[in-house]
């Protein structure tokens, strides 16, 4: 993992800012649930963003009194109550990391695996937010066919571990590969290896926040 930090700090910054593509944001969220290694850095970056928010030039609201009144009088439920429940720092053995549940579902047992090769299963979730998103299950000790990709690939280990030219990755680790890497991952002997992978040809790690707003504007 330590051999492969290139791009990782910026990836984490993109998570903190909220500018990653949706599946990449979810992948990094799951990483933070599974591994404590980068929590301090991400908390610091969020603090930095909070300071920036507090230092932002105030822009008066168009109708402050009505806005306040609406808050005090409305009893409508929040859009998404669940967003604000406390984070779970559980392991994947109890299920799917919370950050990934909207993509994978709540149980690993209900994943619709498809056999790819002997000892290798895959479940594709299609293209989400411009990124190909999938789960991969590799039997312990099995090698994956060598592959290259045209864009950056992020792989989060959910169970077991694997090795490739970049190093050894275990549960909670993110393997980060840019387009030029020729991968020959081999799953660790023993426990089967399950990974969540996000690949995109145009993955912009610090994509413009403006693009997040575009759908509201148009």
């Amino acid at each position: 993992m330590e051999n492969n930090v290139t791009g990782m700090d910026e990836l984490l910054a993109g998570y903190a800012a909220g500018t990653l593509s949706y599946p990449a944001q979810a992948l990094v969220g799951a990483h933070l649930e599974l591994s404590g290694r980068n929590r301090g850095y991400v908390s610091s970056l969020e603090t930095l963003a909070g300071l920036d928010l507090d230092g932002s030039e105030p822009v008066p609201l168009s109708d402050r009194d009505t806005a306040l009144g609406a808050i005090f009088s409305s009893e409508a439920p929040l859009l998404d109550e669940i967003s604000f429940s406390p984070p779970q720092k559980g392991s994947v053995s109890s299920g799917v990391p919370r950050s990934l549940q909207s993509i994978i579902g709540s149980s690993m047992n209900e994943v619709a695996w498809k056999g790819l090769l002997p000892g290798v299963r895959e479940c594709r979730f299609g293209e989400i937010d411009g990124c190909n998103t999938s789960l991969l299950w590799v039997r312990g000790g099995r090698a994956l066919p060598s592959h290259t990709h045209h864009g950056a690939e992020l792989t989060l280990v959910l169970q077991g571990g694997f090795s490739d030219d970049d190093g050894h990755f275990v549960t909670g680790d993110i393997a980060f590969a840019d387009g030029d890497v020729d991968h020959k991952p081999i799953a660790d002997k023993g426990e089967d290896c399950i990974c969540f992978a996000v690949t995109a040809g145009r993955l912009e790690l610090t994509g413009p926040i403006g693009r997040w707003f575009a759908p509201f504007i148009s």
Binding site: S44, S85, S102
Partner: peptide
């Protein structure tokens, strides 16, 4: 269901808030 909006958790570590602000600003 695969496309339902996800709650993204806030996973913070345990450092004191004010200490962290001071450090981040200095960094």
């Amino acid at each position: 269901p695969a496309l339902q909006p996800a709650p993204l958790p806030d996973v913070a570590d345990e450092m004191d808030a004010r200490l962290r602000e001071t450090r981040v600003r200095a960094a």
